[in-house]
């Protein structure tokens, strides 16, 4: 199955890139924008048919490597 992991800075941790993007959007006159966060997306295929097992594996990948849980949150999406 295909795995999509989204990693972003935790709420409460200042996101300087998000702030800069927000300013740029405002300068384009999009004044209705708020809470801009810049994150990263990691996409890969996982040779695993058991969803529960896949979720457990990817959670461990996130905790150990893909995210730094001191400053980042992660969200996992499994796509069949």
């Amino acid at each position: 199955m295909k795995i999509v992991v989204n990693v972003s800075l935790k709420a409460g941790v200042l996101d300087s890139q998000g702030k800069a993007v927000h300013h740029a959007l405002e300068s384009l006159h999009f004044n209705n924008v708020s809470n801009v966060r810049v994150g990263k997306q990691i996409v890969f295929n996982l040779d695993e048919s058991d969803e529960k097992k896949a979720m457990a594996d990817v959670t461990r990948m996130c905790e150990d490597l893909l995210a730094n849980t001191v400053i980042e949150d992660y969200a996992i999406e499994l796509i069949k």
Partner: peptide, 17 residues
């Protein structure tokens, strides 16, 4: 060392980018 958990905290991108 912070990534390895040997020191507390983390280093983020500089505020100024």
């Amino acid at each position: 060392l912070t990534e390895a958990g040997l020191l507390p905290g983390a280093l983020k991108r500089n505020d100024s980018l």
